[in-house]
Simulated scan of single mutants.
Amino acid sequence: MSPQFRTLTLARDGAVARITLDRPDAANCVNQEMGAELAQVARDVASDPSVRAVLLTGSGRFFCAGGDVKEMAGYGERADLEMKKLADDLHQAVTSFARMDAPLVVAVNGTVAGAGIGLAIMGDLVLAADSASFTLAYTNVGLSPDGGTTYALPRLIGLRRTQELIFTNRTLRAPEALEWGLVTQVLPAAELDAEATALAQRLAAGPKNSYRTVRQLLLSTFDHGLETHLELEGRGISACAVGDGREGVAAFVDKRAPKFV
């Protein structure tokens, strides 16, 4: 793994890779440097077979307040090219996180906006502090969404609610985000980090092949007809049966906790 980053940190705790967005003085906004580093760190954890779970969070009061608008203001006549570069790097990160084998836990520690929402909702399990809030805000500055928000949001909360969030820039507080299905769980802010860490460790001890297959099936669930998807499920459970499934079934029969390799 690449050990040194300037806009984020990467730490290992056993089989868990912890990524922390680390521009607290800039609300953890994604500038071009962070975009490139996110793409790199996502590739790093996705390609490391020793990583069995990934935890993504932010430092300070913000999870991520979206793209760095102050940097964008300096793009000048190259705004279209520079914006595309920023989006491309961010999208490489989103793709790597979405397609990696390891499950992704996101701990939303504070305010999240714009592209930060795209990063947050790519998590398989999204824990939010009770102080967190969510707003898209793109149209406030004359931009359209990126970061996978128009892909993931309709699938999570439906088209009508997605339209409302994008066109009105309505802010959702954490309890409402939970009610809408945007996050998995809301916790007191003081408990968020410990709970997210424990969850990531629990997943890291789980069945890696099973989790990989689940992620692949869910990512493609809207791409196929019923029969095609049933065939993919059949192939998936068959492959798991000679891997993690063998240990899981044996442990169940023996009335013991499974030990997944």
Score class of each variant (00 low, 15 high):
7 T>Y: 00
9 T>Q: 10
16 V>H: 07
18 R>E: 10
18 R>M: 00
19 I>C: 10
20 T>M: 08
21 L>R: 04
21 L>H: 02
22 D>W: 06
23 R>I: 05
23 R>F: 03
24 P>R: 01
27 A>D: 13
30 V>R: 00
32 Q>K: 13
33 E>A: 02
34 M>T: 02
34 M>F: 00
42 A>D: 09
43 R>H: 11
43 R>Y: 01
47 S>C: 06
48 D>M: 04
48 D>N: 13
50 S>N: 13
50 S>K: 13
52 R>Q: 15
54 V>D: 04
54 V>R: 01
55 L>G: 05
57 T>F: 01
58 G>D: 08
58 G>L: 03
59 S>T: 07
59 S>R: 14
62 F>D: 10
65 A>L: 10
66 G>S: 04
68 D>H: 12
70 K>R: 14
73 A>V: 08
75 Y>M: 11
77 E>G: 13
80 D>R: 14
82 E>R: 15
83 M>T: 15
83 M>G: 13
84 K>Q: 15
84 K>R: 15
90 L>N: 00
91 H>S: 03
92 Q>F: 01
92 Q>L: 12
94 V>H: 00
95 T>S: 08
96 S>W: 02
96 S>C: 12
98 A>K: 11
100 M>R: 07
100 M>V: 05
101 D>A: 15
102 A>L: 03
102 A>V: 01
105 V>C: 03
108 V>R: 12
110 G>Y: 10
110 G>A: 10
111 T>L: 15
113 A>H: 08
114 G>P: 08
115 A>N: 08
119 L>W: 10
122 M>C: 12
123 G>I: 06
123 G>K: 05
124 D>Q: 12
125 L>T: 12
126 V>M: 06
126 V>D: 06
126 V>W: 00
127 L>R: 07
128 A>E: 11
130 D>Q: 09
132 A>C: 07
134 F>N: 09
134 F>D: 09
138 Y>C: 09
139 T>N: 14
141 V>M: 12
142 G>P: 15
142 G>H: 11
146 D>V: 04
151 Y>Q: 11
153 L>G: 06
154 P>K: 07
158 G>C: 10
162 T>A: 13
167 F>P: 07
172 L>I: 05
173 R>K: 09
173 R>H: 09
174 A>Y: 04
176 E>Y: 07
176 E>G: 06
176 E>R: 12
178 L>Q: 13
179 E>F: 03
182 L>C: 05
184 T>L: 02
186 V>S: 03
191 E>T: 05
192 L>Q: 04
192 L>N: 06
194 A>N: 09
200 A>Y: 00
209 N>G: 15
210 S>H: 08
212 R>T: 12
214 V>F: 11
217 L>Y: 06
219 L>Q: 13
222 F>L: 11
229 H>R: 09
230 L>G: 00
233 E>S: 01
240 C>T: 03
247 E>N: 03
249 V>L: 15
251 A>L: 10
253 V>W: 04
253 V>M: 07
254 D>F: 02
257 A>T: 12
